[in-house]
Every structure is written in C-alpha cells, then in structure tokens.
Design a protein around this nucleic acid. Structure first.
Lengths: 226, 226, 226, 226
DNA sequence: TATGAATGAGACTTCATTCAT
DNA sequence: GATGAATGAAGTCTCATTCAT
C-alpha cells in the first residue's frame, strides 16, 4: 500500500496532514462530548459512568481520557456549551434594535434552540457541585452574569413599556424555569416539534409579560427584523 | 389493674407508652425523610450518600435503615410526597366552583405551597431511573395522571373561555416548568418570600393564559403606563 | 385473678418457685438451641442471622442473648450436642459385650439417632473456624478422641476377626462419611423413615466391613442383645 | 505488511498476540476459581470474603470482578466443576461394557479423582441457597439428574446380579456420602495418598454392595483369616 | 492512538451486639 | 425477663483513573 505514489492523497502536504489530524481529533472530541451530554441529560451526571459513554461510542474507556482529562472536565464542557448558548442569545438580543420584550424573546429563542440542539443541556446545569472547585467558581460567576443580563433585559422592557410592571428578578426566574425544564420532558419522539414548542412558549411568555394596553397575541411572532 | 397504686408508677399507662413510641418513631421517620429530601434536592440523589444524611441527623448510618429499607425507598418517599401535593392541588381545584383558569391557579398555588414546604422536592423528581422498577412504574403512572389532569384543567379553561386558545398539552408543560424549576434556585435565605413568589408567578401565568378579550382580574392593580 | 387464694398454685413453696423458674429457663434455652441448630443445618451457620432465629421463635433478638452469650456460643452448644451423641454411642458400644463389628454398629446407630433427632447436627460440624479459639481447641480435641475411638473399634473388629482386614483409619472415615453426609440430603418429608435409613445403612456397612468367611447379609440385624 | 522488517519487532504476530492475551486470561480466571474453591471448601462460602481470595492471589479485590461477575458466580462455577466431574464419571461408566457394579465403581473413582484434583469441591456443594435463583434451579436440576443416574447404575447392578438386593436410592446416598465427605477431612499433607484412599474406599464399597454369592474380585488380596 | 487489565476509594447494606426502658 | 432502637465492623460491588502494551 504505502509504496504506491497515489497514496500521496492521504498526506498531500505536510501542513495539510497536520491539519487533518487536528481536525479529526476535534471531531472525535466533539462526538465524545455529544454522547456524554446526552447521557448526562437522560440519566444524570452521577448515574452515568465513563463505561456507559465509551460503550455508546464503541470505544474503550481509556480512549475518552485522550479527549477529556476527567469526567468532571466533560461536565465542565457541557456547562460551557450551555453558557455559550445563553451568551449567544444575549448577543443576538443586544444586536437587535427593538423593545426589551423583543430582545428577551430573541434571547430565549436562541437559548431554546441550544436546548433542542445536539447538546441540549440543562438538567446537567443543576449539577454544579460535581465540578472541580475552580471550574465551579468559574461557572457560577458566568451564570450569575447571564442571569443578571436576563433580568436586565426584562427591566429594560419594563422601562420602555413593552413589558408590564413586574419584579424583573422573579420574572426572569419564571421565564428561565419554563425553558430550563424542557429537557425534563422533551423527547425527540414526542408529538411536538421543537419549532412548535418554541413558538407556543414564546407566545405564552409574550402574552404573560407584555404590557396590558396593546392588543396581545397578535404580536406573538417576534422574529427579529420582520 | 388500677387498684394497685404502685402499678401507676411502674407503667403510667400501657397504652400511652405504646402510643408515645409509635408517635416518636413516626416523627423520626419524617425527620429522616426531610433531611434526605433536602439533600437530594440540593446535591442530587446519586451525589448524596447515606452517610451524608446520617451525619446531618447526628445518627449512625445503619439507623436510617430502621426507617427506610433502602436508599431507593427514601427516593420513592420523596416522589410520593410530591405527588401527594399535586393531587391535593387537583382535589382543591375540583372542589372549587369557577372557571378553568381559576381552578388551574388554585391547583398550582397548592402545588407550589408543597414545594416551599418542608419537603419541597422537585429536582429529585427528575430521577425516576434510580427507583426500583416496581416503584418506577408506580410513579410514572401516577405522574402521568397528574399531568393529564393538569392538561384537562387547561382544556376546560379553553372551553369555558377563561383561557385563550392554546395547545393544552404544551401550556401545561409551560406552567409545570415554571413551578418545578423553583427548587433549582429558591433558597430560604433569598430576597423573596414564598408568598411573593407565588403571587408573582400566579399573576404571570394568569396574564399569559387568560383569554385576551375578557377583563383580567389580577391585572387591575397593574395599570401605570396607560 | 391475683387476689384469689387459689393463685397459690403458682407459687406453692418458695423453693418450688425457684425450681419452676429454673426449669422454665432451661426449657426456653433448649428451644433456642433447637431452632438455631435446625436453621444452622439448613442454611449454614454464617447464612443464619440471629434475627432469623429470633423470628422463628417469635421473640426479639436481644432475648436470645439472655440464653446464649453470643452466636458463637450457640454454635458451640451445637457441637457439644453432636459430640455428646457420639460419646453416648461410644459408651453404649463399650458396654456391649460382643465383637468389634457389633460394637461399631451399635455406636453408629446411636450416632445416627442423634442426627435424626431434634438437633440433627452435622453440616454445622464442619464449621470449626467460626468458633472462639478456646472453644475451637476444645472441640477439635474432643472430636479427635471420638475419631480415634471409632478407629479403635474397627481395629478391635479386625483383631477379633469380625471385620475383614483393612486400614482402620480409612475405614472409620468411610463409615463416618456415610453418616455425616445424611443431613445434607435427609428431609423429614422424604420417602424414607429414619429407621429404614439406619437399617439400610447398617446392613451396607456390615456387609462392607465384615470378614469374608461367614455368610453376610443375614447378619444384617445387629440390634444389641438379640 | 511483511516486507517492512521493522514491522516484525513492533507486532510480532497480530493473531498470536490476541491468542496470548486470551490464553493468559483463561489461566488467570482458572487461578481465581482454584483459589476460591479451595477457600470455600476450607472455611465455607459465607465465611470467605472476596478480600480473602484476592489477597491469596496477590491482587486487589476489584480485579476478581474482571473474571467473575459476582461472588455468587464464583460459587456457581464451583458447582459446575463438581457436576462436570460427576457427569464425566457417568460417561465413563456408560462407555464401559460390564456389570452394574463395575460401572458404578468406575463412575465413583472418576468422581473421587475430581475431588482430589485441583478444584476438589464438595462442602461447597451443600451451599445451594447462596446461589442466584436461576443458577440454583439449574444446579438442582442437574444434580438431580446425576443423582438419578447413580441410582440407575445401582438398580442395573441389582438387576444383573452384580449388586446384592437393596434399595438403590438409599444405596446411592450411602455411596455418595462416603465420597462427598472426603473434602471434609482430606488434607494434602495427610498420611494417605489419594490413590490409597480411592483403592480402599472402592474395596469397601464393592464388598458392601456385591451380591453375596458371586466371587468378589477385589477381595482376592484380602484373605488372611480364612 | 487505543486497549485490556488493575486498583484505591467509596457507596450501600447487613449483622452481631449493646443500651435504655 | 423482654424489647425497640442504635451502632461499629465488615462485606459486596462500582467506578474513575492509570499503566503497560
């Protein structure tokens, strides 16, 4: 095999080869994370053994340690993905030029998309105690910022009149509860598509929060830039 | 019996003694459950060892086994308390003579009271896999009934016009998410009292669900921006 | 009840009362031993908990400790009963005026009677390691004496011509194996009565050991003094 | 592949390596079984901890679980070896063309060889209760078959006149008692070799069972007292 | 890079035994 | 004398992690 020149397709150029290796490694690492996140969500972090994850992937346990230094690091990675989703939503909201309510809905939609996505992670989010102290501090701080930003968005809406008067802190916990509880009941095989769920929940949140004056329900579609 | 005076000093009242023992046993069993539920909620079922529970109570580990046959039985007891709360709420709603929306709110208020109560347990609820198969089937069936009843309540509200048009299934998941997520963030030492939270959430649910046309009761006091 | 003079029958004389108490205590102690021995034989010493014994007797666990200082003492008592049976058989054999073979059979019959009796104990006998060191030494020494006496009986038979030439040591292990294995298969509900079994085994041992000259089988009945 | 000389040093023979691993694994598994059987026989199943077994082997406790799923599976393996021996003896007997008595002795000799062999196990055999229900049923059924076959062999001997008239059932229990009790007293360091014991026991069984009329083979060398 | 094997730490659970009533 | 409650010690088993190949 290796003496045929056509084999060159495998290692066309030294730099390319290295790139391929890195790329493949990155893909495998993501596969591990995806499977682990799914298992953590379904059965809980502590109920999921590294053996479980390995056997789903069809590899041996030690292989996992080539991509993640420890089980806790896997959990940390899950947290990061979730927080990335949250922050991506916040960024989208910040970029949107509209009312506080619109921004809030844009943000939560993006957040829900993450939950329905490959790494839908939320029950996991509860498990902060299983993290290494350093990671835990990191996560707690970052989540506090996201939480605060959610509250800010609502306060903004109250200020600009798009959201009815309410305690922004409690209203944000209300909204996040709706969203964070999704993984507790959502199943791919269930009767509703993610789109239906997002649509429906967005509508309920809007009518729940919107200021009473204007006619509601009609504004349900809050896609940015419509 | 009662004619020998010395008998009184020796065994004050035979029935009483037995009663006291039973009563004390009941109290201790409940204390174990309370501590365990709290720990399960805070750190998760699998992350909580029987040693943890025992040491909080200041007893040795085997003592716990006098009150619960296994750790799984403790978890099952938690589930039962939660489901009792849900069913109590449903009973209250059924007894109330009013619109579907009113019934729904009565039910959810009672449910929240349970969560804020001594055994407030919900994150635990997610952990159905850790139950013994028989108990699991039991819990799943009972929860399905509660879930269905919640949906019925909403369907009733839609039918009688108190609740705006919506998918009752998704709306019930919306409402239960709000409520079930409470234990994930609520702390006794937090800034808000359970009453404030219940009030606030009930209001948000009402305005979110209420049919747009009809006058909204709770909304009365919230009219600054008109 | 207690104010009627006829109650005197309960405590007729001070000495008698004490006797009754002792007698009752003795009886209870024996009941405990009987139940324990039976359970030990059926499930093995280590597989039998004090709770098992207590629940069969319908008493609480601590009550057992009023009659036996420890579980090991119960086992020791079992050993003693078994050895008493063996020694009783040896005494009977010594008292019999006849051939070595006759003496041997008399001894083994008595031994088997013990096994079929209330405290039938033999699997237990194997468990010497579970005894307290002091008791263990005691038991080992006493059993060695019984074992040696069995061998002597056979040697005597070989010498007086009633038993064919053989290694008395091995022949005694042969005979004791037959007998000691009985509890491993005998059930009260089985098809054969203890008498049938004893009769049959005695006959087989006799024909197996008897000197070849005389016609065998006919002498099967080896009841002493016939 | 084979044209690069350096390949040979790296992976001498892919098939061979796998074979070696499997072979070594098989050997280790057998070592675990050997040590466990010996300990179970000496001290009893319940008195033997996995730590005991592990420390004799010089490995850590969890290592044992790589070869046997549970302690009960180890016990089951012991039972299987014993039953394999019994069945091997029965097969040998069936293949032999001779009288019922001859077949019986052939069978029992083979059985005894198993007992004296590396995994000599019999006291363990008593412990059927410690097995998992499924295994227990399996063992009980298989042992019943072996037991029945033993009885058949004796019935055959009675029918062909090689064995004197007797109850085949009781006679088989007699013979199996002799044999099964061996591990209770046999020690490698004892005065008699396995061969001597087998020879002696076979002779005693033959003279015990043989029909009185027929000439007895083994008896030839034992004729001092005539 | 990937894997079979090994292990230290720790979890649940049982049980003989004691204590207070 | 009898019992309910409590406990220290020990046993089985699991699992994250490492090592040698």
């Amino acid at each position: 095999m290796s003496d045929t020149p056509s084999a060159a397709t495998r290692a066309p150029a030294p730099g390319r080869a290295a790139f391929d290796r890195d790329e493949q490694r990155r893909r495998k690492r993501e596969a591990v994370l995806r499977v682990a996140a799914s298992a953590f969500n379904r059965r809980g972090f502590a109920n999921t053994s590294m053996d479980d994850v390995a056997s789903v992937l069809g590899v041996s346990k030690p292989t996992l340690y080539q991509y993640f230094k420890s089980k806790q690091e896997l959990l940390y990675a899950c947290h990061q993905v979730a927080m990335d989703n949250g922050e991506a939503g916040l960024a989208l909201a910040a970029a949107h030029d509209g009312t506080g309510l619109e921004k809030l809905i844009i943000y939560l939609r993006r957040y829900m998309e993450g939950i329905f996505g490959d790494l839908g992670n939320c029950p996991v989010l509860t498990d902060v105690d299983s993290l290494v102290p350093e990671d835990r501090a990191n996560v707690v701080a970052r989540r506090k910022r996201i939480s605060a930003a959610t509250k800010e968005l609502i306060a903004l809406g109250v200020a600009d009149g798009s959201i009815g008067p309410c305690d922004p802190k409690l209203a944000s916990l209300f909204a996040l509860g709706v969203v964070n509880w999704i993984p507790a009941w959502y199943r791919d095989s269930g009767p509703n598509t993610p789109e239906e769920i997002m649509e429906s929940f967005a509508a309920l949140l809007i009518s729940g929060l919107a200021a009473p004056a204007a006619p509601k329900r009609q504004r349900a579609k809050a896609k940015p830039k419509a």
